[in-house]
Each structure stands twice: as structure tokens, then as C-alpha cells.
Amino acid sequence: MNRRIALQALLLVIVAALFIAAALNAARNLEARHIPTSFAFLWQTAGFGLNQSVIPFSPLDTYARALLVGVLNTLIVSAVASVLATVVGFAVGFARLSAHWGLSRLAALYVETLRNIPLLLHLLFWYIVLLTPLPQPEQSLSLGGVLLNNRGLYFPFPGLGWPSFDAARNAFNVEGGLRLSPEAAALIFGLTFYTAAYIAEILRAGVQAVPRGQGEAAQALGLSPAQTRRLVVMPQALRVALPPLISQYLALTKNSSLAAFIGFADLMQVSGTILNQTGAALQTIGIDMALYLGLSMLTLALMRRIEKKSDWGAK
């Protein structure tokens, strides 16, 4: 027994020594190649502008703040898309399970088509679909103070005023109001409809995992079909569905990193600009990895809470 522990300890020491030697070696070589490894650049002035931010940001702010803007944009888009994907996914999932033949086939078609097309194509598709038919700002569509053009959807908002186009003030764009940009919309649509296809299948798997006898027993006890679904089938189905569902939310957050292809200022896009300007490749990629890991842990913690509260996960 003691010998085994001694062997394990020896192995641990060897592995640790290897790691330390590798790290020291890498540090020495990085320095020899003049590759920057300091994180001090984070407090330098960013110098570039960002068109989408929920916190005030100007080019005079630091790289760290630019990164924060990117993280918040990723967070918001992922949260909104997760909720929408769940709604759409459940709707499609129930349609797939429906006894109505046409509805069920339609849902199956949705799932098979959407999940077999790469996400990047979804995003580019939505971006083009949103941009092509929309008018220029001069000819904005207007409904009850809300303006729509190929630069975005503008809502009146307290503090930001009513959106309006005034060529004397700004010859190019609508001013005022709260804006949803076509980039954010395309990203949300793309992530939502793509992820919904997977969520629909997860729901179907969950429901079909509940033994048929459960539903029959509930009905024999006099529960209505709606009650059967709500009180007997769904709690058990969700217990099965929850772990893969969580994986989907994690995947969605990570998939949002394709945003830079359609011009949305997410974490990857902002850090890409920072990498280009500072040349701090190792640090920037390290920060990205840590932040995505952090976002995933956050999602996981949140889902665990929901799981505990709802009692779906109970044994």
C-alpha cells in the first residue's frame, strides 16, 4: 500500500517537473523570439470603435473595456437565442410528436433540413435575407414610432428619444432610439433556428423515453390528456432531456463566436481586433479560452440551479 502511494507521488512529481520545465522553456524561448507575453496591453487605449455596445464605449477606452463589451454582446445574444431556441425547439418537438401526420412530417422536415446545414451558412443566409429587402434609411418603414431600414430596427426608448431620419442632421442614418442591428438579428435568428432543430429532437427523445404505460395509467386514473402531459409525462421527459439540453446551450454560446463573419462585435471579433493591433496572440487567445470557459461554467451553474429547483433531476 505504502509502496503504491510512493509510486503515485513519484509519478506526480515527475509530471509536475515536466510541466514546469516545459513552461520555463517556453517562457525563455518566447522572450528570445521577442514574442510579447505581458498582459499590460489590456490597460492601453483601444483606439478602435465598436458599433454595438450596451455600456458606453469610445475609442479612448482601454482594451480591457473593449473585451468587456465583447463579452456582454456574446452573453446577451446567447441568452436571447437560448430562450428563443427553447421556445421554437419545444414547439417543433411537440409538432414532431403530434398525432397529426402533416404537422409531424413538417416538423421532421424542419429538423432534418436545418441541422444538416452548417451554422455559418445559416448566419450568412439570415444576414442576406434581412439586408436585401430592407430599404435605405431615407425610405425607412415606419410603424408607431418604430423605424425599420437596412441599418436596423429602431425603437423609441426612454433617454434615447424617438428615432428619426433627418438628412440635415445626418445624411446617412437614423438618429435616436434603441437599435437592433441587422448583424445582431441575423446572429440571433441563425443560432435560434439552428439550435431549435437539436432541441426538438432532445425533447422528442425525452418524451419517448417515458414508458407508454405511465400515460395510460394516468388516463386510467381519470387525468385529462393535458393533465397527463403536464403532471406525468413532462416531468419525467425533462429529467431525461435536461443534460443534453444543457449541452445545447453551451454549444450555442460557443457557436456565437461565428459572429465576426457577419460583422457582429462579439468576444471573438473584438479580441481579433485587439490581437491584430497588439500582436499579443498568446495572451488574447488565452483570455478568449478563459472567458468562453467562464461563460460555459456560468451557464452550467444556472442550469444546475434550475434543475434543482424544478426537481426534474430528482431520483
Partner: peptide, 27 residues
């Protein structure tokens, strides 16, 4: 994205004292 383009752009508009929206793409 991928050059000093965004920096030059922001610098220029700051110098001119005007604002503009920059939409940044990877490709």
C-alpha cells in the same frame, strides 16, 4: 478586420470631430 484599418478609421473621425458607425467583418 485584420489590419490597422479600424484604428486609422477611428483616429481620423476623432480628428475630424465627427462620428460614424464601423461594421467590422472577418473576411
Amino acid at each position: 478586420q485584420g489590419t490597422t484599418t479600424e484604428l486609422n478609421l477611428a483616429d481620423t473621425f476623432r480628428k475630424l470631430g465627427i462620428s460614424a458607425e464601423t461594421v467590422v467583418f472577418t473576411g
